[in-house]
Design a protein around this nucleic acid. Structure first.
Length: 376
DNA sequence: AATGGCCACTTTATGGTTTC
DNA sequence: GAAACCATAAAGTGGCCATT
């Protein structure tokens, strides 16, 4: 594996970066300062659609774009992630469902179960390249300062940054018998740093999935509905949407995940890749704020878009009432086909219930929602 | 086994301050 | 007056744990 090493007499900074990154950086003169930030996400999403064949973005393929861009493989099972990791371990019920989902997805994307990993997670992989480049730039920048800080203590065997002796012992003990010659210090250090980077990388993902989901949906709506006059924005202030008052003083302004404004209707979207109980409570609180702030005396839609696979959570979203009418105008899942395939081997009533909701039109697919937006 | 809920994790955005 | 720097709030998610 090619690596960039910043050598110094003490050799304590070893940054791992792929050759590919380095080349990209040279051609890509502009440096990305916030790899996961709104600006870079927009740049990457634009690039994704520019490189693909489906530039217009057909409603029927919308789910595939979302999954190619955002879905990932669970490291512990090797399968496409559709539920909490601890419940998706081999032998537990959601392992079977994860297998079914993985099977459905590789088929639907026209690839094999073994190759699926390379067909998804586009956004995270690209953003991660930018992040690595930025980390490298920063390390170079502060290298001098770090060396000065350590200078007074040189020669006294102070621990080096990023050494992690415990992790090193684990690896050493495991391989001891098989190593003819003990590897040099730099090799150890690079290995340890690579392991740590690999492990921490996964934690960063949730950071990108959240707002990245909002951005991807916004872009898909824009491209799918390019024929009709509509204004789509992610994280728009409620007060900036026509017909909604600013908050009373001392109350903090409310941001809407996705706001779609058409001549005929204002649609406020809450977009959550997945759901937890605490987030469910937020739905009703937000809706209350929206109703409070409405100033035109005209109806608006409140839509929930998600990739949640838990039937209980989906059911509550479908059934939730505000006053005595359904709170959500639509409950939208990225792929109701994926849901059905994932549940197909399960006889639990909760899952049958969801299939009924799908069949009755209460829980609709992203494709269906986009066509509704196009026609209204 | 399913449910409900808490919170650790990580980054960005923002606003203020300092430096050149 | 731009830039660089710093501290802090906010956001969103998945893992995890206790309870049903």
């Amino acid at each position: 594996m090619p690596a960039e090493t910043i050598a110094s007499e003490e050799s304590w900074i070893i940054i791992v970066a792929t050759q590919e990154n380095q080349e990209k950086e040279e051609t890509n003169a502009e440096a990305v300062k916030s790899a996961f930030g709104a600006k870079n996400r927009a740049r990457l999403i634009a690039r994704y659609f520019a490189e693909g064949e489906d530039t217009q973005c057909a409603a029927v393929d919308a789910w595939a774009h979302v999954y190619r861009l955002l879905l990932w493989i669970d490291q512990t099972t090797g399968l496409a992630h559709c539920y909490e990791s601890d419940k998706s371990q081999p032998g537990k019920p959601w392992y079977g469902r994860s297998l079914a989902f993985h099977d459905w997805l590789s088929n639907a994307l026209g690839t094999s179960p073994a190759d699926l990993a390379h067909r998804i997670d586009w956004l995270f992989l690209r953003a991660t390249e930018d992040l690595a480049a930025e980390v490298l730039r920063r390390a170079v920048k502060i290298e001098h300062a770090t060396r000065q800080q350590r200078a007074p203590y040189s020669g006294r065997g102070f621990p080096k940054p990023g050494e992690d002796p415990e992790l090193m012992t684990i690896v050493k003990d495991a391989l001891d018998k098989y190593l003819g010659t003990p590897p040099p210090d730099e090799v150890w250090q690079r290995l340890i740093q690579q392991i740590r980077q690999y492990l921490t990388l996964e934690n960063k993902r949730k950071n990108l999935v959240g707002e990245g989901f909002e951005d991807v949906l916004a872009e898909i709506v824009r491209r799918t509905c390019s024929a009709s006059p509509l204004d789509v924005r992610a994280r728009r202030l409620l007060q900036d949407i026509p017909g909604f008052n600013p908050p009373k003083k001392n109350e903090k302004p409310n941001k809407v995940d996705l706001a779609i404004v058409r001549p005929s209707m204002r649609t406020l979207v809450t977009a959550k890749w997945s759901v937890r109980a605490d987030r469910e409570k937020q739905f009703a609180a937000d809706f209350g704020d929206y109703v409070q702030a409405e100033s035109d005396g005209k109806p608006f839609e409140y839509v929930f878009v998600t990739n949640e696979f838990d039937p209980a959570r989906l059911m509550r979203a479908c059934e939730k009432l505000a006053t005595n009418a359904p709170m959500f105008t639509h409950v939208v899942h990225i792929s109701t086909d994926a849901l059905k395939a994932t549940y197909s081997g399960s006889k639990e009533p909760s899952m049958r219930r969801i299939v009924e909701f799908i069949d009755s039109g209460r829980l609709i697919s992203l494709e269906r929602w986009l066509t509704l937006l196009q026609t209204a």
